[in-house]
Design a protein around this nucleic acid. Sequence first.
DNA 1: CGACGATTATAGAGCGCTCTCCCCGTTGTG
DNA 2: CACAACGGGGAGAGCGCTCTATAATCGTCG
Lengths: 346, 346
Amino acid sequence: MNRQAPTLEDVAREAGVSRATVSRVINGIRNVDPDIQEVVRRAIDSTGYAPNRAARSLVTRRAETIALVVSGAGGEQDGAQGEFAARVFADPFFGRVVSGVVGFLRPRSMHPVLMFAESESARTQVVDYLRQGSADGALVVSTHAEDPLPARLAAEGLPAVCFARPAVPAPVSFVDLAHRQGGLLAAERLLERGRRRVATVSGPLDVPAGQERLGGFRDGMERAGVPYVPIAEGGFTLASGVAAMERLLAEHPEVDGVFAGNDLMAQGVCQVLARHGRRVPQDVAVVGFDDSSVALTCSPPLTTVRQPVEEMAASMARLLEEHIHGDRSEPTSVIFDPELVVRESA
Amino acid sequence: MNRQAPTLEDVAREAGVSRATVSRVINGIRNVDPDIQEVVRRAIDSTGYAPNRAARSLVTRRAETIALVVSGAGGEQDGAQGEFAARVFADPFFGRVVSGVVGFLRPRSMHPVLMFAESESARTQVVDYLRQGSADGALVVSTHAEDPLPARLAAEGLPAVCFARPAVPAPVSFVDLAHRQGGLLAAERLLERGRRRVATVSGPLDVPAGQERLGGFRDGMERAGVPYVPIAEGGFTLASGVAAMERLLAEHPEVDGVFAGNDLMAQGVCQVLARHGRRVPQDVAVVGFDDSSVALTCSPPLTTVRQPVEEMAASMARLLEEHIHGDRSEPTSVIFDPELVVRESA
DNA sequence: CGACGATTATAGAGCGCTCTCCCCGTTGTG
DNA sequence: CACAACGGGGAGAGCGCTCTATAATCGTCG
């Protein structure tokens, strides 16, 4: 914006019509004589006009922007967000969320504003950002349970859609997976492969997804007559998967099947098994969860429970758009079904 | 924004002062009587006022937003961006870029708008976005050489800063690494460990970073009297690293040291070596490049050439800010030095 | 042939904010 | 004691756009 950018007024003068007419041509509203449309369009090209977003937003009261918020409990230290962002992106999960969201937004010429909300001040920034009208709504992905952000947004009456049911109850729309059913699929697969001495590296048990995947898995095992499943709790990270598997293996060396709460931990499980000379899947079968990119790069490639993250993310964006446009006022939930993807690890 | 949000006018009435005074208090401009400041501040709290971004932008002619653009040659098919975004985030590099950018922006209450520009229409969207004043400038990270975006932005006079020198010459600021020097460090390390039958899995040779890392490595080897280094070209991905190493090993089974163009490929190299029963680093020493998160999760942990991506990204953001505020008008380049990080693989 | 819808263009009033003038009162100075 | 200088506040003109009310134009029918 070095030299003055052309305005509607300039285009109107060039085309010999009024501002309003040019506006109508641009927004494709109401009847405008085709000849005049053509003249206006030519004037737009010749002036190199680009509508000013701020001016438009001011009157339409819409930013045409949404915030994509990664929320959770980080160090609660401000400034530590660098580490938080890095941790977030280490999980291929977020790339898939972004991919799904962008896939939905882009055909609408919209682009997400990326925000991290791991501390109280960061959460305040998010709320303020929305209250200022900088974005019309928020897509919230929480990394930890007890995230207060969804409730805060709901209290402010700001449009928001969460990935996964918020642990802190709030009248907010969300998109989620039938985690129990996913755990069940994992159990069935291991049973099918004849495994009975199974163990699990669960996700964090204070996170619903962690709990329910475990619950579903346990149910499946119990139904098949396996009453007890050793559990080592992990934190959905590679390192925590490694640590958990080490513990598990030390206490239960006879294990012949492992269900990991996500693929990242499953990768850790495989590494530990390899280090201890156990072959996967011959000695120990491993089932992961998510069907993320690591499921493919892991050796061996993981048999895993697929979570259609991209579609779920796109669904969040659609839901948010409906809330923003007022097509939908009541909070809504959309639950997706998991699917077993068989590869080599089980 | 369900019920009408309070405006400056409302706050002014509440505080019994003029709009201008409230504005001054909020923006901390000029001296305002401390008593009045206090009254105004109380009025802001009691009304729950939040300044409207669009209105402010309209007059200041600044969006207080920047675009973070991941640009490159994707399928050139629109709609294939889902795959592009996923591929982008599969590389831990981008997480680090985001982390660095956000680290700089957040203390300034700014947040990046995430955009992908892998097709012609997507690039047009980016240019239009900036021309509309939706963002004040762009941070561009190109995944492929010959990216036309930097030149387009420069031609439009839009503020932009690139990660790495644009392959298509353009008067644009950029931040880069002394790649040759990095390649040299890798060579020195392998020589130090007594390796002479070395080979390299290079990055794509049409990308300056790939070329120069290789060039520096070759120089280092030549200087030490090693005249020939077998090369297998990769594409900076895990899979390409695996394929390249397979080729290399088939033709040069006697290899005792490998320099990989980045950590992701180094991981592939390690996997192939393990599969072929070669121990790292005893039989074959491996040096990676980047010091990304995979350098730590790889087994064994990688000795690698560190690229300070976070600092580089923060530096891009700072440069862009200077361009936007007019503190700096000439394109500028900032080159960072690489650093050897010794772990277990070499 | 005048009147009356129907259609299409224009005029102009804001949207909420910043910022340049301008004014007023107090203090300092010759 | 008159006047300049200065600190601190208000009035009001836009920023560029959308959109409603209004005017102009045309065809058509009583």
